[in-house]
């Protein structure tokens, strides 16, 4: 199985820039996002860190409009997407979830081909071929015919990444993609993500893996209580935190 990791990414998945402007979102009286400005340049990775409840996952869901912001704007490649059909937008933005959310009633391959045939209009053969290509990239081509439930958590998450990538997205969102994994399975998923970043994908990554943020991210954002409290290069954030809140957070997680 020639796979993943050190080999240069076979097909370049060109990422586009992502930005948000003054995004606000409240659930009732709970103001989850209070004016988020975000700029992720094309083909770079931004990691969002922060305590739980700080609005990180909500921010990701505003970017692909699983949640609609009350105020503000979301831009892909410099163009506002709020007026677009949200279903079309989501085909351009891949998302990977904490709990994988693979479809348990379908085989690994069918998890990937579902969107390809139904949304991308590929024929069954084309879809299967593309699914196998992306499964191969995450090292799981030999698992194409089994149900996701028979895979380990790490393997499931890599299938979920392959499922998102097969749609050939311009941006990838990762919502605590390794938080639900046993420690020994985290590495494989993170290395898949690192490969993807190196291959030119634009990635917005909500994570608790500070090591990953350090080595892969071009930019780290620290969120707390619905705001971006600090952002900058990993060195800046981890070596020279300015705010007390970030210092306190880092002292707890590192």
């Amino acid at each position: 199985m020639s796979t993943t990791s050190t080999s240069p990414t076979a097909t370049a998945l060109e990422g586009v820039s992502v930005a948000t402007r003054d995004v606000h979102l409240a659930f009732g009286s709970n103001r989850v996002l209070r004016g988020i400005d975000l700029d992720v340049e094309a083909a770079t990775t931004a990691c969002v860190i922060g305590p739980s409840g700080s609005g990180k996952s909500t921010l990701l869901r505003v970017v692909n409009r699983l949640l609609e912001p009350d105020r503000g704007d979301v831009l892909l490649a410099g163009r506002s997407v709020l007026a677009d059909n949200p279903d079309d937008l989501r085909q351009r933005v891949g998302m990977v979830f904490q709990h994988f959310n693979l479809f348990p009633h379908k085989s690994v391959r069918a998890n990937i081909t579902l969107g390809l045939t139904r949304l991308r209009g590929l024929s069954k053969d084309e879809a299967a071929e593309r699914a196998m290509h992306h499964l191969d990239r995450v090292g799981l081509a030999h698992k194409a015919d089994v149900r996701p439930g028979t895979l380990s958590g790490g393997q499931q998450q890599r299938v979920a990444i392959a499922r998102a990538l097969a749609m050939e997205p311009e941006v990838m969102l990762f919502d605590e993609a390794t938080s639900a994994l046993d420690p020994e399975l985290v590495k494989g998923v993170l290395s898949t993500m690192a490969d993807l970043a190196a291959g030119g994908m634009t990635m917005l990554v909500v994570t608790h893996e500070m090591g990953f943020a350090r080595s892969v991210a071009g930019q780290v954002l620290f969120m707390d209580q619905g705001r971006v409290v600090e952002s900058g290069s990993p060195e800046r954030i981890f070596e020279a935190p300015e705010s007390d809140r970030l210092r306190q957070f880092l002292s707890q997680v590192l």
């Binding site: 050190t6 380990s152 985290v186 590495k187 993170l190 690192a194 070596e239």
Partner: peptide, 25 residues
């Protein structure tokens, strides 16, 4: 059917040399 029949765990022979997990500084 819902029980995982013998889930084999990730054992990738080719992980990258970079350690990406929690490395405290």
């Amino acid at each position: 059917g819902r029980r995982a029949d013998g889930a084999d765990h990730d054992q990738d022979p080719d992980l990258p040399p970079v350690a990406l997990t929690q490395e405290a500084h």
